[in-house]
C-alpha cells in the first residue's frame, strides 16, 4: 500500500513536471488557442455561441482592452461556483485554469499601472472574482485526486502533515518531505530533528503564554457580557431567547438580577 502511494505521488509529480515542460515546449498545441475569451466568468444566462480570441504573443496581452482604460466601471459576471466546476471535465478545467491565470495577470498588471499613473483602476472586485474562481477550481481538482488515491491506496495522497510541538512547546504543523532513505538510515535528518522541549525558561514562557491566551478569552467574555447588559438596559423588553442564542457564553438569567441593567427611567409599557 505504501509503495503504491509513493508510486502515485511520484507519478503525480512527474505529470506536473511533464505538463509544465510540454506546455512550455509546444506553443503550437491546439488547446492553447481554444476559447481563451470564453470560460472566463460565468453567469446563468441565455445560450449563445462561444467566441474565441486569437493568440497574440504580445506584451499588451498583460493590459486590458483599450476601451476599458478610462472607464469608471467594467461590468463582469460572478465567479465560478464549485458545483459548476464539478460537472466539467479535467480538460476543460485545465483550459479554464490558464484563462483565469491570464486574466489575473492582466488585472494585477492593470492595477499596478493604474497605481503608478495615479489613475482609477475600474472595478477592483474583478481580482477577487478571479481569485475565488481559482480557489474553487483547485478545490475540485483536489477532490478528484483525493478520491482516486483513497480508492486505490486508502490514503489521501496529499503531503502528510502532523501536529507537533516546537522547541518552545507551541503546537505547529509539521509537513513531511520526500526522502530517498528510510528514516532510520537518514542520519542527517535524525540529527536535525527536534525532539521534545523543556527547561525552566520554556516552562516560564509557556506559563505566561497561557496566561495571555486566558486573558484574551476572559476579555472577550466580558465584552459579550457588557454588550448584553447594555442591550437589556436600553431595551428592557428584549427577547431573552434571542440573547441566549446570540451570546451563548453569557448567563442571561443571572444578569437579569444585576443592577446595571436597570436604566435611569421607568420604561413605557404598553404605550
Amino acid at each position: 500500500m505504501s509503495s503504491a502511494l509513493i508510486k502515485c505521488l511520484n507519478l503525480a509529480k512527474t505529470v506536473g513536471n511533464a505538463t509544465v515542460r510540454s506546455f512550455l515546449a509546444a506553443p503550437k498545441q491546439p488547446w492553447q488557442s481554444c476559447s481563451a475569451a470564453a470560460l472566463q466568468t460565468p453567469h446563468v444566462q441565455m445560450p449563445m455561441q462561444m467566441h474565441t480570441s486569437a493568440v497574440r504573443r504580445d506584451l499588451m496581452e498583460f493590459f486590458d482592452d483599450k476601451k476599458n482604460w478610462s472607464e469608471n466601471e467594467v461590468k463582469v459576471g460572478r465567479a465560478w461556483r464549485t458545483e459548476e466546476l464539478r460537472i466539467k471535465s479535467n480538460k476543460e478545467l485545465h483550459q479554464l485554469w490558464f484563462v483565469l491565470l491570464k486574466e489575473r495577470n492582466m488585472l494585477l498588471t492593470m492595477e499596478h499601472e493604474c497605481n503608478d499613473k495615479m489613475e482609477v483602476f475600474p472595478s477592483p472586485e474583478r481580482i477577487d472574482k478571479v481569485k475565488i474562481s481559482m480557489e474553487n477550481l483547485e478545490t475540485v481538482v483536489r477532490e478528484r485526486n483525493k478520491a482516486y488515491h483513497l480508492l486505490e491506496t486508502g490514503e489521501t495522497g496529499e503531503r502528510p502533515q502532523k501536529a507537533v510541538k516546537n522547541a518552545f512547546g507551541l503546537q505547529v504543523s509539521y509537513k513531511a518531505c520526500e526522502h530517498a532513505l528510510p528514516p532510520f538510515m537518514n542520519l542527517k535528518w535524525i540529527k536535525s530533528r527536534n525532539i521534545g522541549y523543556g527547561g525552566r525558561a520554556v516552562n516560564r514562557f509557556l506559563l505566561k503564554y497561557r496566561e495571555k491566551l486566558y486573558n484574551a478569552k476572559r476579555k472577550a467574555k466580558n465584552r459579550s457580557r457588557n454588550e448584553v447588559m447594555m442591550i437589556l438596559r436600553r431595551n428592557p423588553n428584549f427577547d431573552l431567547d434571542v440573547l441566549r442564542r446570540q451570546f451563548p457564553d453569557v448567563n442571561v438569567d443571572k444578569l437579569r438580577n444585576e443592577d446595571k441593567i436597570r436604566g435611569h427611567y421607568v420604561p413605557k409599557v404598553g404605550v
Binding site: T41, P42, H43, V44, P47, E84, I87, K88, N145, Y148
Partner: peptide, 28 residues
C-alpha cells in the same frame, strides 16, 4: 452578458466523465 462572460448554457453543460485517474493522469 459581456464579452468575457461564459454563456449560461456552457456553464450548465455536463462534460465530466467519471474515470479512474487523477487530474494529472487525465491531462497527460
Amino acid at each position: 452578458e459581456r464579452e468575457k462572460d461564459t454563456p449560461g448554457a456552457v456553464v450548465g453543460e455536463i462534460t465530466f466523465q467519471p474515470k479512474l485517474s487523477t487530474f494529472e493522469m487525465d491531462i497527460m
